[in-house]
């Protein structure tokens, strides 16, 4: 399989320069790497720019209604656990109108791969603030700035008891691809937040963090089992002091490499994962797989329960079932 096998014949209609193009290419590549045949994959989306994505896949696809992709995908996966099911959604679709389905799909731990394209804006409706827009954000629907705080997707996922969360940036193709692969390999609900740029309505929203000029200083790519190092020459690292994370320079102020934390994505306790997911300001934005913990997933559990009951109850047809109840014979 190669990436071409997962592309449909449809013309991709996103604006030139939109971050969704890159994310789409990464998804094609990730699927090729995973090697699941296109006809065994279902890609489910809601409404919004990013939710057009299923039309550009050569898989089974369902472009549904606003906010409901997680619920519809839950139905697909629960009915057919053998399928590889992806959800493609945006910050408005997923975290505003679809917030309820999103948190419950995560809490239930349905084995879905959820690609959350976060551009912090409503693009398809031409520029309103979204639930991830920063406080004070000026948009057509908030002409004097918003007076509300945004969701941080990682925090919401952990609050909903999620066990896989990764963060990627649209321009980093190799890492975005590898994070999609990691999400697919995780058993259970897996969320990959891709920071994408809306070139028309919110151009450069992530630039202050991810621009090549200072990306090394302002982000950290976490890898399981490796030291939490960042900076141009990996000279900086994260340490835990009291109940707070701190960014330090190795060899400065008495800090040595031994003091730097080692990332354990498989740790069940989510305290540190939450702190990593929330990092901003003086601390670098965390990219990579922040949490990846195996727990039983819903769709399999539903099937297992049925199988278990069928081992002790031999009834298989409605007629047999009805005849075993309180029945009387006439004539």
């Amino acid at each position: 399989m190669n990436a071409q096998d997962y592309k449909s014949d449809q013309y991709v209609r996103w604006c030139p320069g939109c971050g969704d193009h890159a994310a789409l290419n990464c998804l094609h590549k990730a699927m090729a790497e995973l090697g699941v045949p296109p006809h065994e994959i279902a890609v489910i989306s809601g409404i919004g720019c990013s939710s057009r994505l299923p039309y550009y896949m050569n898989t089974y696809g369902f472009h549904t209604i606003h906010g409901r992709a997680a619920a519809i995908a839950t139905g697909v996966k629960t009915a057919r656990p053998d399928l590889s099911v992806w959800v493609v959604t945006g910050d408005g679709d997923c975290l505003a109108i679809g917030g309820n389905h999103f948190i419950h799909a995560i809490r239930r731990n349905v084995n879905l791969n959820i690609a959350l394209f976060n551009n912090k804006i409503y693009g398809l409706t031409k520029g309103q603030y979204s639930p991830t827009s920063e406080r004070g954000f000026v948009s057509k629907s908030s002409p004097f700035g918003t007076v509300e705080d945004p969701f941080i997707p990682a925090e919401l996922v952990f609050g909903a008891r999620g066990n896989f969360f990764a963060r990627a940036i649209d321009t980093d193709l190799a890492n975005t691809t590898s994070l999609f692969v990691a999400a697919a390999r995780h058993k259970g609900a897996a969320v990959v937040e891709v920071l994408v740029n809306c070139v028309i309505f919110n151009d450069g929203t992530h630039r202050a963090i991810i621009d090549r000029e200072f990306r090394a200083e302002r982000t950290i790519f976490l890898r399981h089992g490796e030291k939490m190092l960042f900076g141009k020459d990996n000279e900086k690292g994260l340490v835990l002091e009291g109940l707070k994370l701190r960014a330090v320079t190795v060899g400065k102020d008495g800090y040595t490499l031994n003091d730097i934390l080692v990332h354990d994505a498989h740790e069940a306790d989510l305290t540190l994962h939450l702190m990593l997911g929330l990092m901003k300001g003086d601390l670098p934005l965390a990219l990579g797989v922040i949490r990846d913990v195996d727990t039983p997933c819903y769709d399999e559990a539903v099937t297992e329960q049925i199988e278990q009951i069928r081992t002790v109850n031999p009834v298989r047809t409605l007629q047999e079932f009805l005849m075993k109840g309180e029945v009387w014979k006439v004539g």
Partner: peptide, 8 residues
Amino acid sequence: CTAIGASF
């Protein structure tokens, strides 16, 4: 929605 997904 889950029912529609299941039908799909």
